[in-house]
Design a protein around this nucleic acid. Structure first.
Lengths: 146, 146
DNA sequence: GTTAACGTTGACGTGAACGTTAGGTTTGGA
DNA sequence: TCCAAACCTAACGTTCACGTCAACGTTAAC
């Protein structure tokens, strides 16, 4: 359990070594201690911190490509609606819908996952907030009392 | 209200003209019609679509800098915890906490906004999904019945 | 004490998501 | 009809978030 070298941290966090150094450079992570030779020595706290960052990144970081997938669903449905009155071929409509359904299901699953992680995140921060408030109250009231 | 030129769309959506053209290029938006001279003519639907994209982008797109703000709060609190047993100066601790509290409040507000938008987003997709399922059921069942 | 595996710091490369500039065309009002 | 304002495409520049390569130093096992 002692100090970890960067490769172990990489495997534990799922990030590449490059990314770990990059995050340190950005200041996302406190710089770890070093050996006399200059090698980085990480603690468990560093790993936890990186996992938090990865979590937050997964929730909050989506590319335009991913966003496109979401908006595309609505368009497909709009296309379907437009074609609804015109298309004579019911089987064709059906095939189209059957194609889009699994896509929507996938998006819903992704959204639910992100929502869950996000609410968990919210709870964490909320708890921290409460502790801060309590601490502030406790230090404030006694001076006024008696 | 008639066709919109790109500058009006820009003001209505909050995106720059460059970004609007870029999103079209990416296929995030259906290409608008053109005048004989080649000028883009947008409809209200285009504007709505862009607003959806902006919304989704605001929810899902955060940089590492923004993520850093979230993670930083935890670190500050950890620092506080560490110093809790050692610091003799209670006023100093209090000042530190009073400094972090508004930061946490801001983060909470941001998170709540994102959460609300996200759940709304989720509801929308869920409704679309239901309509698709119903449509598939309706076209399926009658052929089997009576 | 040698050596292979792993670490370090630059430095350049890359794709995404635009900003900016250049050079030319279109539009709409005086 | 003329002209400024707004539009167009094309192309290069930029920042972020890393990947990748080179050249070199450190560790740990044998």
């Amino acid at each position: 359990m002692g100090p970890y070298k960067i490769d172990e941290v990489s495997k534990a966090s799922g990030l590449t070594k490059r990314t770990i150094r990059y995050y340190e450079e950005l200041g996302l992570m406190p710089p770890p201690s070093r050996t006399d030779g200059g090698m980085r020595l990480y603690t468990q706290e560093h790993i936890d911190r990186l996992k938090q960052i990865v979590n937050a990144r997964d929730i909050l970081g989506s590319s335009l490509q991913e966003i496109q997938a979401f908006v595309a669903i609505r368009e497909e449905l709009q296309d379907y609606k437009k074609a609804y009155g015109q298309t004579v071929d019911k089987a064709e409509k059906r095939r189209q819908l059957e194609k889009t359904r699994p896509m929507i299901e996938k998006q819903l699953q992704m959204l639910d996952e992100k929502l869950e992680k996000m609410t968990q995140f919210r709870r964490d921060i909320g708890q921290i907030y409460q502790r801060v408030c309590i601490a502030l109250d406790q230090e404030h009231t006694p001076n006024e009392g008696v």
